[in-house]
């Protein structure tokens, strides 16, 4: 019998299993266990959550492999880790650890100002951020098996995630009404690979799973992104920078499952304690906006 490993079907298949779920940033084994107990579908193993990366400043790099490994040993759910944009050796190291998914992330300091990683070369799947359809399709063209909005990580302000989700879904709606003979110009206009654009038109949605990320801090934020049409959410700083992480984590998991039921959302939003303090994105100078990173 022939076993085929590392096919695109298998890579994007794991993302399909994560749908309707919450992926949580964790920086310790204890956080990872809290996330798993709360019902996270996966954890992102990090040295610092984005809010602390912002506060700390300097060059943000891949996390210590020893920390990633400890977290892998602590939980049974999939573990993700971040590498810098274009830093394919960090990605090779993460793959060698046996991590389940790599996030080529704008939250870390980019290692290449023009190119992303050739993700087809790897056995494990990648997720990449996007602000619009062209960026999403370029990443898929490079081999990403999952897409997320960039949002503005570490702010607790959902406005950018909303902007990016509306931009992607709006462009897909426009694409569906575009006749085939106009597709090449459409591809040129948004800087997207033609075949992937055509596939998106035929499917009526992106050819891979599409999550929201960047600024989600409450159950209502998570449900807002789900109602806008994403398949699931990443929560970075929003959980472990809040007053009661286990309760907030559980309530965000429940909000994603029942995103369309305001009565349940009202119940699970009660008494969660302090949310993360947050930074209004409109007050962030352009140079401090992480979403601008990526090409």
């Amino acid at each position: 019998m022939d076993k085929k490993v590392a096919t695109f079907t298998v890579k994007k298949g794991l993302a399909q299993m994560l749908k309707g779920g919450v992926i949580m940033d964790v920086v310790t084994v204890e956080h990872a266990r809290i996330a798993e107990d709360a019902g996270a579908v996966a954890v992102m193993a990090l040295e610092r959550v984005p809010a602390d990366i912002r506060a700390h400043g300097g060059v943000a790099r891949m996390s210590d492999p020893a920390l990633i490994q400890e977290i892998m040993e602590a939980v049974t759910i999939p573990v993700m880790a971040k590498c810098r944009i274009g830093h394919f050796v960090e990605a090779q190291i993460i793959e060698a650890l046996g991590v389940d998914f790599i996030d080529e992330s704008e939250v870390l300091t980019p290692a290449d100002e023009a190119h992303h990683i050739n993700k087809h070369l790897f056995k494990i799947p990648f997720v990449c951020g996007c602000r619009n359809l062209g960026e999403a399709l370029r990443r898929i063209g490079e081999g990403a098996a999952m897409i997320r909005t960039k949002g503005e990580a570490g702010t607790g302000d959902v406005v950018e995630a909303v902007r990016h989700a509306r931009s992607v879904f709006g462009a897909i709606r426009r694409l569906k009404n575009t006749p085939d003979e106009e597709l090449m110009s459409f591809a040129k206009e948004i800087g997207a690979p033609f075949e992937t654009l055509k596939e998106t038109k035929d499917l009526g949605h992106l050819p891979v799973v599409n999550f929201a990320a960047g600024g989600i801090a409450t159950p209502a934020d998570a449900a807002l992104m789900m109602q806008l049409g994403v398949d699931g959410v990443f929560v970075g700083s929003g959980i472990f920078k809040s007053g009661d992480p286990p309760l907030r984590a559980k309530s965000i998991v429940e909000a994603v499952a029942h995103y369309d039921d305001p009565k349940i959302l009202a119940e699970i939003s009660k008494g969660l304690g302090e949310p993360m303090v947050g930074i209004e994105v409109s007050e962030l100078p352009k140079t401090e906006r992480l979403a601008e990173r990526g090409w």
Binding site: K4, V10, G13, L14, M17, P78, D100, I124
Partner: peptide
């Protein structure tokens, strides 16, 4: 883990057209 996820053609006698292999996808 995910790196060991795979696809394989299997035989399932209870299915219609049982001689045609079924494309089974195994994710973790």
């Amino acid at each position: 883990r995910q790196a060991d996820s795979f696809e394989a053609d299997i035989h399932v006698a209870v299915l219609e057209d049982a001689k045609t292999p079924f494309p089974a996808i195994f994710i973790r």
